[in-house]
């Protein structure tokens, strides 16, 4: 606590007597786990200097365009995106950014699979990525159902038999436009953004997985275990970061 005559604490560290507070404990744990230089790094290990590491950031960029164009579509509504030239353009941007999103995500997935990117205590990073992919498929599917055109009618009537055969049709009715729209614009985007956020934080926490080490390398390098900077392996000299992950 401060009085009017005292100088406010500007360091953000708080007062010693406040260290037992939940917010202070959470802040301390967050800063200890992800200090600013690790959360927003300007250097990456040398092995990141490859085009295959670009596709994670490309996926994130496409997701940003998907969200922004989706917000614009939500503001103006179906008659706008079906009938006006600007609406058709934004609608197309939304659809094509989804195409780029999945394209980049699949290349990112292949790259990480062949790197065995779950090595070095990165299992949670891998799993959140895989679950993000699966949930994104659901988000795209409900998007096709929300187009309000003959295509969405065709997709929904084709999909209902498949969904019903799983037993999920009772609670997930693909011919219920209102339900599918809510899944598409509220539930699934929240889950995708949350999972992607955790995924990126885990990449920052554990570091980018290094290449496979030669057979005669020390055990630490072979397992890809991150050191304090998340950098291991024979080529751990740093290079500037340009949004790669």
């Amino acid at each position: 606590m401060t009085t009017g005559t005292e100088t406010p604490v500007e360091s953000g560290a708080g007062l010693p007597e406040d260290s037992h507070q939940l917010s202070a404990k959470l802040r301390g744990a967050a800063v200890a786990a992800l200090p600013p230089e690790r959360l927003m790094p300007d250097r990456q290990p040398a092995y990141v200097a490859s085009w295959i590491y670009v596709f994670g950031a490309l996926t994130l960029s496409a997701l940003g365009v998907v969200i922004v164009t989706g917000l614009v579509l939500a503001i103006f509504g179906p008659s706008w995106w079906h009938l006006s030239t600007t609406g058709l353009f934004v609608n197309s941007l939304h659809m094509w950014s989804v195409e780029v999103f999945f394209f980049a995500m699949v290349v990112h997935l292949w790259g990480k699979f062949f790197m065995a990117a779950w090595r070095g205590r990165r299992r949670a990073t891998w799993i959140t990525g895989v679950v993000s992919f699966v949930v994104s498929v659901g988000a795209a599917f409900t998007g096709y159902l929300s187009q309000q055109n003959f295509d969405s009618q065709w997709v929904s009537t084709q999909a209902k038999d498949g969904i019903n055969s799983t037993g999920a049709g009772a609670i997930f009715n693909v011919t219920n436009f209102g339900q599918m729209l809510m899944w598409h614009i509220v539930l699934l985007p929240l889950v995708v953004v949350a999972l992607v956020g955790v995924h990126v934080l885990l990449v920052r926490l554990r570091g980018v997985v290094p290449p496979f080490a030669p057979p005669d390398a020390p055990a630490t390098e072979a397992k890809g275990t991150p050191d304090s900077q998340g950098e291991v392996g024979p080529n751990s000299q740093a290079v500037p970061t340009e949004g790669r992950s």
Binding site: A46, Y47, A49, S50, W51, I52, V54, F55, F103, V107, W110, G111, N235, Q237, V239, P240
Partner: peptide, 19 residues
Amino acid sequence: IVFFAAILIPFRRHGGRGR
């Protein structure tokens, strides 16, 4: 095609630093 191109095409490095 893009996957193999991303592996095979060299990545431009800045100022001679890096590996």
